[in-house]
């Protein structure tokens, strides 16, 4: 179980997360949706410990990431997670196989002889074959994304944080990835958080969906509840309309930004 309580995070003067309360039950897939730049990736990074929240706590199986002290505690915490970066973040000096097996050495006791096997198995799961010896630069955008996904799941983590797993994939491949996320949940009882802009994918893989707006959670509900929401902002977002309450907010936000920028320019 992942439980975030009052998570606040700012970068400099800009408040990105303004108090996130979110509970992800074990075995559940929580989908996070929300406008670009509203702090979804930042939230995932707080959960895995890449960013330290300014205040609030994030508790996973009774361990509070914000209170972990020793290196050992932190690595025990991190060991439970797989993380798919929005931009892949593949090691570009290594082959695909080395990328996928990189974590095995540090996160598991799997013997070296099994690495090759695990690499091709993980690649097969994401619909790739015979690319083990390619360098990331030789792959297409969608292939990179899938290799990154293969890397995130190779060590069979208990928790997986997916940052836009289907962005940049063709519709069929997107659905293959959706099935994979569902399979991992059903068969390996993975608890997951999926950040996505792809509503089809959100409805398919989500046990529940949380909508972020301006660093807060607007609504959390099952896909059914979200589909039939009464909240105008959520409705606007899931239906993808340019007219509605959020547009206004965006304008306000931009004005805010401009004012901030001007102030920064002055001093």
């Amino acid at each position: 179980m992942i439980e975030a309580k009052g998570v606040v995070k700012s970068f400099g003067r800009r408040a990105v997360l303004r108090g996130i309360d979110l509970k992800v039950e074990s075995g559940e897939t929580m989908v996070i949706i929300g406008g670009s730049g509203c702090g979804k990736s930042t939230f995932l990074k707080c959960v895995i410990g890449l960013h330290a929240p300014d205040s609030g706590e994030i508790v996973v199986d009774g361990l509070d990431i914000t209170k972990l002290k020793t290196e050992r505690e932190i690595s025990d915490y991190r060991r439970r997670f797989g993380y798919l970066f929005q931009e892949g973040a593949l090691f570009d000096s290594m082959t695909v196989a080395d990328n996928i097996c990189f974590g095995l050495k540090y996160l598991t006791d799997v013997p070296l002889s099994k690495y090759r096997r695990i690499a091709s198995d993980s690649l097969a799961l994401v619909g790739l074959k015979d690319v083990e010896d390619f360098k990331p630069a030789e792959l297409s955008g969608g292939m990179k994304k899938r290799v990154a996904l293969a890397r995130a799941i190779a060590a069979q983590p208990q928790y997986i944080l997916y940052d836009e797993p289907t962005t940049g994939l063709d519709p069929i491949m997107s659905d293959v990835i959706n099935d994979l996320i569902l399979d991992l949940q059903k068969q390996l009882k993975v608890t997951a958080i999926v950040v996505t802009h792809d509503m089809k994918s959100a409805y398919k893989v989500g046990s529940r969906i949380a909508m972020f707006l301006e660093g807060r959670i607007l609504q959390v509900g099952t896909p059914e509840q979200i589909k039939n929401t009464s909240d105008p902002a959520v409705r606007q977002f899931v239906e993808g309309l340019s007219q509605g309450p959020i547009k206004m907010k965006l304008k306000e936000f931009e004005a805010d930004e401009a004012r901030d920028g001007a102030r920064r320019g002055k001093d």
Partner: peptide, 17 residues
């Protein structure tokens, strides 16, 4: 380059420092 492409963050998530 590793830093700006998040490869250094990836090292952390893959269990090393």
């Amino acid at each position: 380059t590793m830093k700006v492409t998040e490869q250094i963050d990836a090292l952390y998530t893959l269990g090393t420092d």
